[in-house]
Design a protein around this nucleic acid. Structure first.
Lengths: 220, 220, 220, 220
DNA sequence: CAGTAACCGAGACGGTACGTCACGTCTTTCT
DNA sequence: AGAAAGACGTGACGTACCGTCTCGGTTACTG
């Protein structure tokens, strides 16, 4: 996302000259820009995210914007990544099912925010014919979230719910959860009700822990 | 998709006068336009689908194009719907697992075509901030495919694999299959290998038919 | 203006078969079309004269319209010529000055009608880069009006106001009167008030009959 | 014609800061655009004046063009006004007749240029149904040329050819000269030959200075 | 009285220009 | 050297009108 400023932060951290020559970049601009971008995404969708409008609303020149992010895609990735970075598992969960339910609920809530779903789908759409963009999205947006599945697996193992880590296929579980929630919320366009979350959680938990005595589905 | 001509086709089906007054629309233009649209989608992605280019490549005036479809969205929906309409279950499947595997494989193959994934994601992206578009996509593109799940359930019941139709939640199963395949192929950007298809099929089948004696996952 | 029908009329006049084979043209359509054309010119100016709108308002198909006039220009010429054909000198005038004043007044009144000035200027504008159109306008619209000057000269000679016809240069007088009125009404955009008509008439009459004792201009 | 830049020029003239912030407008673009507009008018008439073609030929983007002039009309007015601004009376004329003859000759020469007559008539035509446009044409194109008549009258008075300024009605004389030349050159479509100029000059001079001893018309 | 030729309405068709908008770059002055 | 301002080239948008064409159907004269 950021290019030079990330580089700058790194240099600063290792003790290199902390200040490049010339006027330093405004520290407040970044936040103002991202906030403006999110607001415009929420209001006008992917097409409403206009570089000119972002600059105007952030009280910043277009030049400043492009100095930090090279394109609309870069800016959108930055905005999305920041929001996704806030996803967390709860501190304590009684069992795997509760952890699954929790992550489904949190992810669905995130997709309920218009700026999130708009940016995410806009990026995915453009990435279908742009391998470089697709790679960046995967690396900076998608893959970091797999930590949730990895952590859930570790907890399940610690609790003794599963015996071998191989019993849980992280990539597959992640695709099932993320894909299904996106499909339900954005394509089927139905709200992620408590009932739906219960049904989906049961579905996933049954696939992972197929205890025979458990009912397959709760009543809808 | 079509507006007036769809209405016409319907009228024709019920036996009303099949020919409206005035010069009839060119019968070849529709196919040429849809073919051109698909070609451009495959070559240039969602942004490459330009009304002017579609018209040029189809050997047709832009006005002709707009006479049939009111917008780029309408055109894309028509192109997508036509491609999706070809999805079929195989004539005979030995069991539910084979039917699941088959539909996953076919859907993944369809998403492997660039014109398909490009149009589908472009539409979904734009629909995130356009409820009317979202509704049309759901009605004309998504919902018709649920027939595959309904038919699979009917077969499973006929075979005695499930005892009550309520054991299979059509909407949920559909969202799981469609969402997961899309996420895997388009977002995670990994090919739908045979191995992956097997693992995912096992996952779904286990959730639906949680026989205790069956291993949860085949070796990756 | 009309092409085939003019030819038909000619044939009829010389006694040739008065009726071509096939269905004869609707006799009411011509008037309806010209009336519609004039109405649209008056309402929307030159740009408001749309072949499609003319057809719609006349309750006629565009085909019918183009069968009679080959282009928008042809149609406008027909509409203008019909209106100009109504210009007449009064039956009796006491002297040359009165005849001049009268023709100025009538021509100014005609140019006061929006459909007239709109069509006339639209045609002249397009004719500046279209010699064929310019020739047709001159022959069918402009030159026929010179009869007014010729007739005025004949009357003046009959009255003894001038001794030789060469004293009055028909083409020049026509250009002075027509051009000045157009310039005043359409370009300078001032109304052709009685006072202005008097001043202009005096100007022309003075140039033609330069009696020394007469004041050059009445008080404005 | 120009909107903001005209305002800027004015500010600059009174000594205010001559440079607004931001990138200044290209100084060469204006001339290139007006030259391209004149060339296209000369080649293709009023219909040949296409905003897209002007931009292409001027080596400029269409947006640049619309940033300076809001419409085809604005652009044409600018082009015409610039050409008309070059009209001058000769430094010294022996008498009123020579001044009249000179201005007629110069104006006829100007109308002989296709870009001039095309733009002028195109504007006048469109102005017949657009009062705002008509007003702008009068103010920016027509009225400034009345200075020629005013100056000619001042000279005639200085020479003693006329005793009172009221003997020459500026507006009327202007309409007569401008209107007649336009009518002759553009509508009657005859060249402004020396002979015609002499005859018309005599006509005007006779009306203004009706000396009895002078022959009314030279031999044609 | 059937043919037939030209008419009529409706409207689709290829083409061309319109004026607007967003992108991402460039060019200026100021800090 | 960063920042604000805004002009710049590019290219797509969806609309409107032109003049042509292609239908089904309607008159009249003609053989």
């Amino acid at each position: 996302m950021h290019d030079e400023s990330a580089e700058t932060a790194e240099r600063r951290a290792v003790g290199a000259p902390p200040q490049r020559i010339g006027r330093p970049r405004s520290t407040t601009a970044d936040d103002a820009i991202l906030a403006a971008a999110r607001a415009l995404l929420a209001e006008g969708g992917w097409a409403g995210l206009t570089m000119g409008d972002v600059a105007t609303r952030a009280g910043v020149a277009k030049t400043t914007l492009y100095r930090r992010w090279h394109s609309k895609h870069d800016l959108a990735i930055a905005a999305v990544a920041e929001m996704l970075g806030t996803l967390r598992l709860p501190d304590r969960g009684p069992d795997l099912r509760a952890d699954i339910e929790d992550v489904v609920r949190r992810f669905a809530a995130l997709l309920g925010r218009p700026e999130m779903r708009t940016a995410l789908m806009g990026l995915v759409a453009d990435s279908t014919s742009d391998p470089a963009l697709r790679r960046r999205i995967r690396e900076e947006v998608v893959d970091p979230q797999k930590r949730l599945v990895v952590e859930g697996r570790a907890r399940a193992e610690a609790r003794g719910e599963i015996t071998a880590p191989g019993d849980i296929d992280v990539d597959l579980i992640f695709d099932v959860i993320a894909g299904t929630v996106v499909q339900h919320v954005l394509v089927s366009a139905e709200p992620a009700s408590d009932n739906w979350i219960q049904r989906f959680t049961t579905f996933v938990a049954t696939a992972l822990l197929p205890h025979p005595g458990q009912p397959a589905h709760p009543p809808a």
